[in-house]
Design a protein around this nucleic acid. Structure first.
Lengths: 161, 161
DNA sequence: CTACGTGCAAATCGTTTGCACTACT
DNA sequence: AGTAGTGCAAACGATTTGCACGTAG
């Protein structure tokens, strides 16, 4: 549906509308970010960007990804690792995550009943629900099949955040 | 049910069993941690500990709370703020959290249907569910009643982790 | 007596920021 | 021209760690 060029246009227009200048660095960073439609850390993104223009600094990658979050083009997530992950907000709808503690693969899912239950909980507590965070951790089919085990480090990473 | 002295005994025994020495600092830190049965950051804990013995260092508080997490006496949580919160694992059962984005109050809840739905999602994806994280963010009854609004900083803190 | 625990200060990690310079608009 | 963006290196906040000394066992 929404192809790369079209999305780029959209982001660029939104940036311009906010008086944000469109630099070469931003073009590269945003292009790579949108193109890699999985969960990327700032460091990974910086690394990928460097392969196109080695002179782009980490600071600029951080500044740009933060800009994208601010204008609503990217979502920032913190799974059970030290650094934040980012995902495009334009190419996907609301979803939650399943994280494999063995291979690290992140699967997205939507489950309406869960959303409904959440609203019920909130309502029962007189809470006006505005946002939620929900992550399921475990072992994916593939890892279970090959008899993998959850490394101790994954447990620590999990209970450590 | 489980009173302070009894829990202390339990923790101390578990520590001893692991060949961990029971120092004065640890006695104070653990006592205060167990006594404050809400969500505490390491810094808050350090502050409270200091009021009893000003010489206890932050490093020792960190080392001790990590020890507690390791022996399963404490749970570490990361809500939408920079630092981790800890809660006693002995005085409470499994529960999830409702976080008020206006006043910061954290309410615990248990909702069986949610747990069931989670298992269904995991099963549908061939996932062996081992752990989950679920936090509902919004505005509590009190804040809604007094017409409070969610500060921009809370939104940023939320979307920033 | 001998590890283990402590306080301190320095190191770490991911991320942000001040600065002098560059380049959109 | 003028202001926003850049790279660099230094600053950041939360947490950890190396070290020399102290103390539980």
């Amino acid at each position: 549906m929404t192809d790369l060029a079209q999305i780029m246009q959209q982001v660029r227009d939104e940036a311009r509308r906010r008086g944000v200048r469109w630099t070469n660095q931003r073009q590269i960073i945003v292009e790579i970010f949108i193109a890699s439609n999985d969960h990327v850390t700032a460091e990974e993104l910086h690394h990928r960007v460097r392969s196109i223009d080695a002179s782009v600094s980490a600071a600029t990658v951080y500044r740009t990804i933060n800009l994208l979050v601010e204008i609503g083009v990217a979502h920032k997530r913190h799974f059970s690792s030290g650094s934040a992950s980012f995902e495009s907000a334009l190419t996907k709808n609301h979803h939650d995550h399943l994280v494999c503690m063995s291979c690290g693969v992140i699967t997205e899912f939507v489950h309406e009943p869960l959303e409904i239950q959440q609203n019920e909980v909130a309502q029962a507590h007189g809470f006006q629900l505005l946002h939620h965070r929900m992550e399921l951790y475990g072992m994916c089919r593939t890892c279970t099949a090959r008899g993998a085990t959850v490394p101790a480090s994954a447990w620590h990473a999990l209970t450590d955040r």
